[in-house]
Design a protein around this nucleic acid. Structure first.
Length: 828
DNA sequence: AGCACGCCGACT
DNA sequence: GTCGGCGTGCTC
């Protein structure tokens, strides 16, 4: 048995370490520690090891022991990379739990957890073994070629040799040369992370008085006006900031880099390279104070009371009820006791203004971590958390992997957001649930906050597993928006509807525009028209990969598949019958934008959906335009429901609510309610009550009623009833197995077979393979099998162990043929 | 995840 | 005959 230890070892004993490799392998591997590394090797440190023929990997030491493995000869550790552990004991425990819970390998968790700059690049280099004489004529052609090349260039990488020989398999040849002692294989691992430096400019202190400065100007203005501009810009900038970077100066002055350079040469400017933080320029520390309202006070009190005997509390607060201020109070209290706080937000909500708002309160104490950060920035945050330099971390789901050492509180804002769940590469984890485990490990508390809590969390609050607090009033006495439901069929009958806009909605839009207020129109579908259909033979173009109908995009003039991204030209004549009567059916944001601009030619209309926000800064650009009131009407998809806190929007129009009322999955009611109330919640800010117009063919729909009455309890009760009868969470736990392969027949065969195997163990808990039709995504065919366990009937970990067993057995049978089985636990 | 080995079909 | 395709199994 291997033991955990932290104390340095003496150099006599032989140590072995078990390491976690950043690969999808089931086991940890054991390596031997060279004596000289005995003192430096520690659990949590990164080590470089050779794994397989020639690959080097950065691995994490999981445990240290003294027993030599019996069945094989352990390889030596090549290098210990850290002076002190890069990963804490808590993290290792957390990784282990995550791997177990989400049925993946620890290596996969490691991959998700460590910024890739902390893993290292491996470049295998080949050199001639100098001082060794050999007979060149005894070599094969290829060996000779390699030796010749090495005579010219002393160092070649394996990929160089691959190119040189024009073949893929070079390893056997190199192995031969290596065994003949002709070449030398040196493996070099280089650190990828380098701190960022930036050039800062200061004015030579000689010019710190008015007189000499004026003198300088008169000289420069005549001879080099650009340089004078640069000096001027410097003085202007120096009024507001302490340090001025070269880039800023070039930007501000309009002078070129050459002008600055000659000023440096004349020693008027002094340039200095400084290591800068990749994150923020730590200058301003502004404090702003606010008072909690009475409602907020009592909600805060309630949360704290719940924390007395519960580890998790749910804060249900309507939109703009001031949840953030409650979070801030809790964070302040927590950091005053010296403990750390993690504030989780969905990626999309991590917009600059939220970050700024929090930075105002916490200044340099706050660290930010999300996917748009590059690797250098991530490593920097990682190191600072490890050093306890940050007290508060604001981040997206991956920030649960940071090396906290004393986490007192985790806030999961917008707790219901599905983007907390990672799907594509394993680990398929939900950061909200992982956060609860993480906090538990640190004996910290978790606050889940949402205006539309997920049913799992709401359920847990109702059964008093979680604490519960509520905020039913908007902050600052702002009233909840007035909601008007308009029947589309009625307006159609009365002929008062203009294209997709009812008279009620048009009235409100015009009203808002004349009041210089803004409008958001919501249509849950991008593109121009979701279906193109031949009027004669009813043919519709389908995606060649996914078999779903293609959406017409007017902006590109092409048909797009919203599933896989496939595009094709729009046919002018029907490919099936040759008729020219092709018709667009249905409508998306593009069409709404189009038709609205005809009806309201003077309005400034913008569109916000996946297509207009694809590039890096376009989302921010739209948000800025909205804030600067350069936009009157914004047409958008679900995207508009999120992160638009500051917009001065009074009217929200839901073009057709019906698409929101019938989601195909089991979360139908929950999602409908969430979408409707999130969109509605955007209406009315800054002291003005908003108006929401819901256009629908089904004005009496139960969820619409629930949204209008803000009746979460009623929603909860109906939803629970449905879930119980259809075997869904929270009464059931779901494990989904995805079978993925390039060949659909294999997928079919495999999933049927696997389902049969699982049925032997779990009987009718096995549902599927479903859907009956195989899904195709990109180049893969996917089919799922679901296992639904009544919540308290069988130990889930036992069930997982059995499933894991079946999968491994299954994969070793001849049937497998390389198909991939990915388990997904509790898919939300 | 790589990478080698082994088995097949298609080429100089 | 060998090159390269893919399927399979192993890596401390």
């Amino acid at each position: 048995m291997l033991e955990f230890t932290q104390s340095p070892h003496n150099d006599r004993e032989t140590l072995f370490v078990e390491v976690i490799l950043p690969l999808a392998i089931a086991k940890n591997y054991t390596y031997r520690v060279p004596y000289e590394m005995n003192a430096s090797v520690m659990v949590g440190k990164r080590v470089v090891v050779q794994f397989g023929k020639s690959k080097l990997y950065t691995a994490i030491v999981a445990s240290i022991g003294k027993l030599a493995p019996e069945k094989y000869e352990a390889k030596y550790i090549i290098e210990v990379l850290d002076d002190r552990p890069a990963v804490t004991h808590e993290q290792l425990h957390f990784w282990q739990w995550l791997a177990e819970y989400y049925m993946c390998n620890v290596g996969e968790v490691m991959n998700a957890a460590l910024p890739s700059a902390l893993k290292l690049a491996s470049e295998t280099k080949i050199e001639l073994n100098k001082g060794f004489d050999f007979d060149k004529s005894a070599l094969h052609d290829k060996e000779y070629l390699i030796v010749e090349a090495l005579d010219i260039q002393p160092e070649l990488t394996v990929s160089d040799i691959t190119k040189l020989l024009g073949q893929k398999t070079v390893m056997p040849i190199l192995k031969g040369l290596f065994e003949k002692n002709i070449i030398h294989i040196s493996e070099e691992v280089s650190e990828r992370y380098k701190p960022r430096t930036r050039t800062f400019i200061t004015l030579n202190p000689v010019y710190n008085n008015q007189e000499s400065l004026r003198e300088l100007f008169t000289i420069l203005e005549k001879r080099a006006p650009k340089q004078a501009d640069a000096v001027l810009a410097y003085i202007k900038l120096s009024r507001h900031q302490k340090s001025i970077s070269k880039t800023e100066l070039i930007e501000e002055s309009g002078a070129g880099a050459a002008s600055i350079k000659s000023l440096e040469e004349k020693e008027i400017f002094i340039a200095e390279e400084k290591n800068v933080s990749r994150l923020f320029y730590e200058d301003d520390e502004i404090y702003e104070s606010f008072e909690l309202s009475e409602h907020q006070q009592s909600a805060l009190f309630q949360v704290k009371k719940e924390f007395d005997d519960k580890d998790v509390a749910l804060l249900h607060g309507v939109t703009s009820s001031g949840k953030t201020q409650i979070y801030i109070r809790l964070i302040e209290e927590m950091i005053s006791t010296g403990r750390q706080v993690l504030y989780l937000l969905p990626e999309i909500a991590l917009t600059t203004h939220i970050i700024e708002r929090l930075r105002v309160y916490f200044g340099a104490n706050i660290g930010i971590y999300h996917s748009r950060f590059n690797d250098g920035e991530r490593v920097e945050v990682w190191q600072k958390v490890l050093n306890n330099e940050y007290k508060v971390i604001l981040g997206a789901r991956s920030s649960v992997f940071l090396p906290f050492n004393d986490l007192g509180l985790i806030i999961v804002d917008e707790e219901h957001e599905t983007s907390y769940k990672q799907y594509d590469p394993a680990p398929r984890y939900n950061a909200r649930d992982a956060a609860i485990f993480l906090a538990n490990m640190h004996q910290g508390k978790v606050l889940l906050g949402s205006a539309t809590p997920s049913f799992e969390s709401y359920y847990n609050a109702r059964i008093h597993k979680y604490g519960f607090a509520e905020l039913t009033e908007r902050y600052g006495g702002v009233k909840l928006p007035e909601i008007e439901v308009v029947s589309i069929s009625e307006e159609t009958k009365k002929k008062t509807i203009q294209s997709h806009f009812t008279s009620v909605l048009m009235g409100d839009i015009n009203q808002a525009i004349s009041n210089k207020e803004q409008v958001i129109l919501f249509q849950n579908r991008r593109g121009y028209a979701p279906i193109l259909m031949c009027k004669i033979c009813a043919y519709t173009p389908k995606c060649i990969n996914c078999d779903v109908s293609l959406t017409y995009h007017k902006s590109s003039g092409k048909l797009h598949c919203h599933y896989c991204g496939y595009k094709e030209d729009t046919p002018q004549i029907c490919p099936a019958c040759g008729s020219t009567h092709l018709e667009y059916k249905g409508f998306g944001t593009e069409k709404i934008e189009d038709e609205l601009s005809i009806l309201l030619p003077d309005a400034r209309i913008a569109r916000m959906d996946l297509d207009t926000t694809r590039s890096r800064n376009s989302l921010q650009a739209i948000l800025n335009d909205l804030e600067e009131k350069k936009i009157d009407i914004l047409v958008g998809t679900q995207m508009v429901a999120k992160g638009l806190d500051f917009a001065d929007v009074t009217v929200i129009g839901i073009i057709n609510a019906d698409s929101l009322l019938k989601f195909p999955d089991y979360r139908a009611n929950e999602r409908s309610y969430q979408m409707l109330s999130q969109v509605s919640g955007r209406a009315g800010r800054r002291g003005k009550q908003g108006k929401v117009v819901i256009q629908t063919y089904d004005p009496g729909h139960r969820v619409i009623k629930q949204v209008i009455e803000n009746d979460y309890v009623d929603l909860y009760l109906t939803e629970m009833e449905e879930r119980r009868s259809f075997r869904y969470p929270p009464f059931y736990r779901i494990i989904k197995l995805d079978i993925k392969h390039k060949d659909p027949e294999i997928v079919q065969h495999q999933s049927n077979y696997l389902a049969k195997e699982l049925q032997k163990q779990f009987g009718e808990r096995v549902i599927g393979p479903e859907p009956p039709l195989i899904n195709r995504i990109r180049n893969y065919y996917i089919q799922s099998i679901m296992l639904k366990f009544e919540k308290d009937s069988i130990s889930i970990s036992k069930a997982k162990a059995i499933i894991r067993d079946i999968i491994t057995q299954f994969q070793t049978t001849k049937l497998s043929k390389g198909s991939i089985i990915q388990p997904d636990v509790d898919p939300y």
